[in-house]
């Protein structure tokens, strides 16, 4: 019987050592592949009809598209239009990772700090490089808001720099911690049920209480899975706007 943290265990499926690095295909990688297959499948299979009046799957695909398009337009501005596929892929990748993890026995790759950190770092580097490409050294003005008096600037600049470099950390830890906490909580409550069931007839009935609790928590986790994917993409949009427009 698994402890509440065993669900996060990485299991090797295909051993794949590449020059000293262990790039094995693991259950984590398997779920990433499943996520992109599902996402691509939804979009391509759903849109196969190209119907004027959409069916169910096509509606979902279009809804997803318009939702992210609206988010990018509102939060990253019109200039961010070329980066829409990037934000869309981020959103879909995280969303499907979160949702896949909710399937019992499945693995949640977004509950691994290294995965979320890799994604957040990618966003961070992308946005920073984009900022320098767009504005050159002018991009450094991001750390000094317009019209700051010089005696406050000494205080503001370090704060701005720190808050800028904390971005990838907070972005990744938020997602990772949400997933970790939610899934651990579900498993802990499920564990209560099982241990109560071991206590005979009374325990069997009493064990239903954590089950009911888990049902409610599961609903909450669904919400969290969607919200965290949204927040991840939303904050990426906000960072992108900073790089595109300065402020």
């Amino acid at each position: 019987m698994a402890g509440p943290l065993e669900q996060f265990e990485i299991k090797q499926i295909v051993h794949l050592p590449v020059g000293g690095l262990d790039l094995s295909f693991t259950n984590s990688a398997l779920h990433m592949v499943a996520a992109i297959v599902l996402a691509t499948g939804l979009l391509i299979y759903g849109m196969r009809g190209r119907a004027m009046v959409p069916g169910r799957l096509q509606s979902m695909a279009e809804l997803l598209y318009e939702f992210v398009a609206g988010m990018v337009k509102e939060n990253a501005g019109e200039k961010a239009r070329p980066y829409f596929p990037f934000i869309f892929s981020l959103f879909v990748f995280v969303l499907f990772g979160n949702l896949l993890g909710l399937i019992p026995m499945a693995f949640t790759f977004t509950s691994h700090i290294i995965v979320t950190f890799a994604l957040a770092m990618m966003v961070f580097l992308f946005v920073t490089i984009l900022g320098f490409v767009r504005h050159g050294l002018h991009f450094l003005h991001l750390f000094l808001p317009e019209g700051t008096p010089w005696f406050i600037a000494w205080l503001v600049i370090p704060i701005e720099i720190i808050s800028y470099f904390v971005r990838p950390v907070s972005l990744s830890v938020r997602l990772f911690a949400n997933m970790l906490a939610g899934h651990t909580m579900l498993k802990v409550f499920a564990g209560f049920s099982v241990s109560l069931a071991g206590m005979g007839a009374v325990g069997l009935v009493g064990g239903l209480v954590p089950v009911a609790m888990n049902v409610a928590l599961f609903g909450l986790e669904f919400l969290v899975a969607a919200i965290q994917a949204y927040v991840f993409a939303l904050l990426s949009c906000v960072y992108l706007r900073d790089a595109l427009e300065l402020h």
Partner: peptide
């Protein structure tokens, strides 16, 4: 492995 597969799949 996780970083590698994250970037590959993403």
């Amino acid at each position: 492995s996780q970083i590698f597969w994250t970037f590959v799949t993403f």
